[in-house]
Design a protein around this nucleic acid. Structure first.
Lengths: 299, 299
DNA sequence: AAATATTTGTACGGTAGCGTACAAAACAAC
DNA sequence: GTTGTTTTGTACGCTACCGTACAAATATTT
């Protein structure tokens, strides 16, 4: 099992170097860390509906589940794992159960910026559904967790076979596209404080509890700003009573206020997720897709 | 036929007000302006392959063409036409033959920013393919042109019926997603001059000739910067011999230099388009998709 | 040609965020 | 505990861009 020193976990300057070595996936047998048995998927017979924490898998009806389940393998997703290397063939899609994923653009120079963020609400490998097998961006684990992976070919076969599964994944891609567009908007016109508030709210949506584990250094990398800019912006949010910042940790005190502070860039993507997939924040249960055969696209 | 006064065409502050009135589409019979007979699609029997200027339609094989062609109606796309109103039901998809389209985020306040740009390389209504019928963003004609529209339902039926058509449109969406991500990146870290160069290069890709019709005012709206910032940035590019700026017009003199000035945010999306669809810039002919049944996704 | 409308160039003070640097605080390892 | 590492707070001068304003240049309309 990989033991990370404090520096290796937290210093994301070194981290980007650290993640260079060519791991696509470390298998569960290799290094699964069982945080709690309840967090691991329980394999059951195909007639029983397994409940996944991943929102997309949770929405699958019996038929789609039967299609996917034989190919799903539980995997551990340690922090810093590069799930997709830029411009490299995508061998697997991954549905996170816990943890957080970031999509990063422009790794060559120092100006890396996050263009997308997801966790149990989405999946890694949208390009596979869109008919490509690589992307110019990097996807890595920002918060460690667990998930289920499926081979690229098995996934593409499944989406060809099941229109309802395909439509579910495409609807997710629609929300992700909107999220990216809202990020472009925020990056263009929102001041650092608003962008920080937006990021914290998005993180909060995808995580249980109010305690977010992030350093200023990390936030500065995600938002593409200077580290002291984060320090100051965070102090503003703390002064307004929206969050409580401690070393390596941000506690959300006033979620509604945080969302208000995030400005208009927060909201549209999240509303679209609620509409097209189900509740993003919290533990609301969404109905499953193909109990009744669902040929109508959500509108 | 609608005659626009100079002010109505060019002043995009007024323009945004001007486009408020609820036109979804002005029909061709109503106001088609035939710029040149060659630009209009020629209706032929289904056994003959019509050649479209729209890159996606041009790639359709005989079967897919037969599926779509009965539903395609030529439409005129005057400058300023709001093709998709934010959060309103999308009734038609449109495949532009000429002209340029912009996707704009955040209209409520003054901070509108362009998050996507396309012309004959793409189509309006990606949300339809992704299983939604509205988007929180506005799509409008930035440069007038002509195109072909199809009813939303006819399109969704066609993509359910033809995997090769569906995969073609999804591959385009993949390139558009990357374009949006690159825009997010550019907005975060690139200075105004780089972003301007990128925008001009993207415009140039989608237009015949080197003469681009834009005002500083318009560019400032698209890039989300102040108008004098554009003036200065354009002077820099002109000083470097990359473009020649005249009132309401920018002539590209050195395309390679312009792309170099655009920095790393230009390139990935365009390379992906070339790889997944066909040549973006220039008049290269791409092979048609479903001549042979194409079940393999491009990789 | 004259009048009007539009577009572009330039200027000014103000500010948000930059790159850099360094010290203080919080934590981990020994 | 003590030591070393990591994270955070703060400072400094600097630059890009902001909001605003106005004059010059170039179209369009009459």
């Amino acid at each position: 099992m990989l033991i990370l020193r404090q520096s290796e976990v937290c210093d994301f300057r070194r981290f980007f170097a650290f993640t260079q070595f060519p791991i696509a996936f470390r298998c569960q047998s290799d290094m699964r860390r069982v945080h709690s048995p309840a967090q691991l998927p329980i394999r059951t017979s195909l007639t029983t509906l397994t409940t996944y924490q991943n929102r997309l898998l949770a929405r699958l009806g019996a038929n789609d589940l039967a299609l996917l389940q034989p190919h799903l393998e539980p995997v551990d997703l340690p922090v810093g794992l590069v799930v997709i290397e830029p411009d490299q063939p995508i061998t697997h899609a991954v549905f996170p159960e816990t943890g957080l994923c970031s999509v990063i653009a422009n790794l060559q120079e120092r100006n890396s910026v996050e263009v997308g963020l997801f966790g149990r609400d989405g999946f890694v490998g949208t390009a596979l559904v869109l008919g490509s097998t690589r992307v110019p961006h990097q996807t890595f684990m920002q918060v460690s967790g667990t998930g289920l992976r499926i081979e690229a070919e098995a996934l593409t076969r499944a989406i060809e076979a099941s229109p309802s599964l395909r439509r579910l994944l495409l609807r997710y891609i629609q929300t992700f596209l909107i999220q990216t567009a809202q990020t472009a908007l925020a990056n263009a016109s929102a001041p650092a404080e608003e962008r920080l508030a937006r990021w914290l709210a998005m993180y909060h949506d995808r995580q249980d509890g109010d305690e977010l584990s992030v350093t200023h250094e990390f936030l500065s990398l995600m938002l593409g700003v200077r580290r002291p800019t984060i320090t100051v912006a965070l102090q503003m949010l703390e002064g307004a009573g929206l969050v409580r910042a401690q070393r390596g940790r941000v506690r959300v005190l006033n979620r509604a206020g945080l969302i208000a502070a995030a400005g208009p860039a927060y909201g549209p993507a999240e509303a679209e997720y609620d509409r097209l997939i189900g509740p993003l924040h919290g533990h609301g249960e969404a109905e499953r897709t193909d109990h009744a055969i669902d040929y109508s696209s959500a509108s």
